[in-house]
Write a protein that binds this DNA or RNA. Structure first.
Lengths: 212, 212
DNA sequence: TTTCATCTACCGGTTTTCCGGTATATTCGC
DNA sequence: GCGAATATACCGGAAAACCGGTAGATGAAA
């Protein structure tokens, strides 16, 4: 196979041992060319600016940045590059955040070589992919995610949205053709229902419950 | 196979035609028993209160509630029940929200019968599962998700967090042993960097960027 | 060493939010 | 038809946020 037809793969991991292990695992694959290995986020970003990379195996823990932000930067710089997170972090929130930031998949480091190859292929075909353990983590949401949100009336939801858009009570009142005093009342009811004492905490809760 | 050993499955969809189609597709499966079909969320919730359901195929569009909230309620009522979303909605945000609310998987309605069976099995084994098209949607995040967030200093991130916890300027100042006036300044810088005019909009943006 | 970013701190004033109440009209389910 | 929930509206006062400035201290990079 011509060198140029091979899949170009990069590795970013602060642990040199891990890099070596991955290289050993991948170097005998016909279709893959390891374009580079990096122990820092900035090192890789520099490389990416002048080289094509089809897929990158990215650790979360890095010396100069965190993998979450780095993933986002990679996708901005080169949207066609697949980011496959490869990490020890098994927190559901981190996995979801990684997806939100544009990752094509997530593997825990205990995944087998076979699993890794499967995931690489699936990611390159444009689909998200996870190692088995990660699939189980995602399917098992914590209690906090499911905690009941106060039930809001239609008007309250409406006003909540407008508040989150940065509108003031007066502005909302005008937009809805209501008395500012009425909007005030709804606002207060929102604070009560969420058991918070100002809009900052209100919006945070609402956002975490996916209400915005 | 004994009736009691079969997997109990329920269908919730406001479209009777879809229910019939799914029933036809599943009725000849040895391992599955269709425990009930419902066209409303409340109908199913009532059933779930007194019957075991291993897995439910859940539509998003429902007459009396939306599938997102319903999914959350189902998982609260019966955490062991797998929820497989089966919908026409192909928006990434809805898929992610559904996962956040405890779904074990997501299929678009154009998925094949074979895909459906695979997903049911994978979900029952405790792993998340998606139809092929959904995997592609997840792997393709929108530009909005990746838009660059303002570069925040350590102090600013710290204060942003405290604000989102509902703390006041005075409270934050005390907690960090700073002058309230200093905290004020940081707060103003945050509003400027995010180009918003109050904390409500600030927290919304920060939450959407996963900063909280 | 100089420059740049950040952190710190202050003044004075305006706007908005927050909180303690109270109260009537409407709408929806039983 | 009758509650219960919801939506509407008001008062007054205290607290907090927001805004437009300015400016010294610190620390790291060039």
């Amino acid at each position: 196979m011509l060198e140029n037809d091979k899949i170009t793969l990069a590795i970013v991991d602060d642990h040199p041992v891990v890099i070596e292990g991955l290289q050993k695992l991948l170097e005998n694959k016909e279709v893959i060319r390891i374009a580079g290995s990096f122990t820092s986020g900035n090192g890789f970003l520099g490389f990416l600016r002048s080289n094509r990379v089809d897929i990158v195996l990215l650790d979360i823990t890095l010396p100069d940045a965190n993998g979450l932000d780095l993933c986002k930067e990679i996708k901005q710089l080169s949207p066609s590059t697949c980011v496959l997170a490869l990490s020890n972090h098994s927190e559901r929130s981190i996995i979801m955040q990684m997806l939100q930031n544009g990752a094509s998949g997530y593997l825990l480091k205990n995944a087998s070589g076979e699993e890794l190859m499967n995931c690489i292929n699936e990611a390159l075909s444009g689909q998200v992919t996870f190692s088995r353990e990660v699939k189980e983590i995602i399917a098992r949401p914590g209690v906090s995610e499911l905690k009941q949100l106060p039930q809001l009336t239609r008007r309250e939801k409406e006003i909540l949205h407008l508040i989150s858009d940065g509108k003031t009570t007066a502005g909302i009142a005008e937009e809805l053709s209501l008395s500012p005093l009425t909007v005030e009342t709804h606002r207060r009811n929102l604070l009560q229902k969420f058991e918070v004492k100002n809009v900052a905490a209100l919006i945070k809760m609402a956002a975490q419950q996916g209400l915005l």
